[in-house]
Amino acid sequence: METAGQIVSWIYQYFDNFGFLLLAGVGLILIYSMMGVINMAHGELMMIGAYVAVSAFHAGAPVLVAIVLAGLGAGLAGVIIEQLVIRHFYNQLLSSLVVTWGISLIISQGTLLLLGPSVMNMPTPLGSFSVGPFAFGVYRLVMFAAALVLIGGVWAIFRWTRLGERAQATMENPAMARALGIDTRRVYMLTFGLGAALGGIAGAMFAMTATISPFFGQNYTPMAFITVVVGGGASPILGLAYAGLYLAGVQTITSNVFNEYVGYVSVMAAAFLALLVMPSGISDFLERRRTRATQR
């Protein structure tokens, strides 16, 4: 039973790490790959989602409703930000980085001034299960499942809806898309709103495992961004999944064989190595190999 518990613990940790990277990165990669915008304010959108969810929860809303409201709230904030600022920075990766850093300062400090050090928390739902001497929180598995559902959802939207078709056309060739009568401005706005909403949902889910402060989201942004970039832009959704699989694997193994410190350093080192070996990200690397294989 001891061994079974240990094995379950490793698998559990892997899912936990993987889910963390997917949830933090899913909204970010959408905005990054579709619009060529590095959104440093993504963590703040997550923070908005967290605050909305907790407020709704304390007002008596069920957890699921609170999460949906968080998505709506962050999505709305995203659309506002897009209209006011981001629309001037499409496909300017680095300028967008600077301007969204400014936005993140405004949102987090503004929240601090507005709400002050107000008390916000939300208990972790769903209890735990045990295998042998090991016990595990159910909720973190739910987070992993939710990450898969969100990613699947995004993929489905792009694959099967009109918005998805238009978005893909816009991504491939904005000028041509415009010539064909697609309102690319609207596509961008909706994409950013969707990315922000995904961030809000992720924030609401993380809110149940952490304390919430105006700086709640800042801690997720760098790691999420590293995952997204390691994934690469060739096929963003798959890339994020690959990068998550890879980095979570490294983290789980090293943190169990050595300790959490080595695990944390190893993730960074693994990202470093992956970029050197695959200079445009994992998905691009795999795509090229596939192309080469078919050409042969």
């Binding site: 240990q6 936990d16 001497p133 801690n219 790691m223 959490e260 695990g263 944390y264 350093v265």
Partner: peptide, 20 residues
């Protein structure tokens, strides 16, 4: 006795160790 860098947020393996 173990030390962790700031930013570590997944604690399951440490929790397992303490329980052992």
């Amino acid at each position: 006795e173990e030390y962790f860098p700031f930013g570590v947020s997944q604690w399951q393996s440490t929790i397992d160790k303490i329980k052992r």
